[in-house]
Design a protein around this nucleic acid. Structure first.
Lengths: 247, 247
DNA sequence: TCCGTACGCTGTACAACGTACGCCGTACAG
DNA sequence: CTGTACGGCGTACGTTGTACAGCGTACGGA
């Protein structure tokens, strides 16, 4: 692996190399590689990106593992490409002129859909920007949704970025909760396996709130009665928190 | 590995086994193993938990790698023990009787300190509860901080849990931002390596807000001029958002 | 006192993983 | 026609977690 940031960025932005014409024609196209990688990550569920394997992807493409290294410097760059492609493929509602709450809600819901379609997007390191065209387009679109709020509240650019980050953080966290309700990984069976020891060890006298609230929260999450209650709660809290910026 | 949840929980809560007295005495104590593992994770920086290796820990303890498996069923359980120990070791301010904003601020700051002392705690999967004594004590303590707010706002138990989750999510996200300002991983050198390609590819006409805001946010984060600006922003937004629950 | 046995410890080994290296064959440039 | 640049990939190495079986210890029962 080269570990060369410039190379990775060029790949993300599809900046073509001089590309000498010698040798055999390429058997694949980068976009196909990324598309298959995305499909593989989606099939892998929540830890899809982590489970995305060079060998598995190669087999999927009918090619030897090492062949992929003529398209991509290494596995990490592949992950970046997959993430950026997911960002690029997001549907983006044009809410120009609408009230800021509606605009921010649209942004949150677009990201919620992203996390639902590609569960692994909720687990990408938020501190490690990809800086690809997809992420940039997403960033531009989402910053635009803050135009009215930024003006009303007198937000400077740093605060505008912080406000967007805040909204996306809350959205991602809610999406994570939603996921484990959906995939049933914390369903009745999960709790049943732990109940005996917990019953022996969780003293309601010592942890009164934890036992009571934990049971209520677990039950609410398990029963899909109101699956997006946590979602609505987080979104409403975030919007109200931002609304307080308007003096 | 047994992958037995009951076994893991028993380990977390230190529920002793019958413990036959035959054979050689044990050369280690579980708490020592966990302590050394914590030190190793701390030394590993942000990806400390991921970088925590059975072999490295064994060498650290002066023991063969496989020996650790007589103390712990597998690496994942080790990670759970380390996380729960970090939770258990947190300082917890008693803010009983104080106004709810002060109580919630204390909770947020305690978690901020946790993420600062052990950067890897900001990267544990929030959807995968450990259910150990440390996490339980932390949960109880933090739920208690919501007593006044829950009463004033008429929160039921499910909402109280959601509100705590909300506050911790925001705290964790802010801690992540703070980390990469601190460790300089996104410092001038990081940007310098990417600047040439970005200059070639980031069209300010096409991405006006992204270029402008991104530059401002990047500069603000790079210069440690105001390192906890994002932190204060997120905390204030979260508290204001929760305050709106009080009709 | 002696031995069977339970149990702590560990050397070896295997299946994943990412990927460095070098060979092979292709197909264009001269 | 030939030299060479380049795509494809077989092999192999280092690193990960951990299954398994052997070794030696030290107690319980005779």
């Amino acid at each position: 692996m080269a570990d060369d940031p410039a190379r990775t960025l060029a790949l993300l932005w599809r900046v073509e190399q001089p590309a000498g014409t010698r040798g055999p024609r390429r058997g694949l196209v980068l976009d196909d590689v990324v598309a298959h990688a995305t499909a593989l990550a989606d099939a892998g569920g929540a830890d899809g990106l982590a489970g995305l394997t060079v060998r598995a992807l190669a087999k999927d493409l009918g090619v030897a593992p090492m062949t992929l290294y003529t398209y991509v410097p290494g596995r990490d760059d592949l992950a970046d490409l997959v993430v950026d492609a997911a960002y690029a493929a997001m549907a983006r509602r044009d809410t120009t002129g609408r009230p800021w709450r509606e605009r921010l809600t649209a942004v949150a819901e677009e990201n919620r859909a992203l996390h639902r379609d590609h569960p692994w997007t909720a687990r990408v390191d938020p501190g490690r920007p990809v800086l690809g065209p997809g992420e940039t387009a997403k960033y531009e679109h989402e910053l635009a949704a803050f135009d009215e709020l930024a003006e009303s509240a007198g937000l400077d650019d740093v605060d505008r970025d912080a406000a967007l980050t805040f909204l996306l953080d809350v959205t991602r966290a809610a999406a994570l909760v939603e996921q484990q309700s959906a995939d049933g990984s914390h369903g009745a069976a999960w709790w049943a396996a732990r109940a005996p020891v917990l019953a022996q060890v969780l003293d309601p006298g010592r942890y009164p709130r934890a036992v009571r609230v934990g049971a209520a929260a677990g039950a609410a999450q398990d029963s899909a009665r109101d699956p997006d209650r946590a979602w609505r709660f987080g979104l409403a809290r975030a919007l109200d928190g931002l609304a307080a910026l308007i003096s």
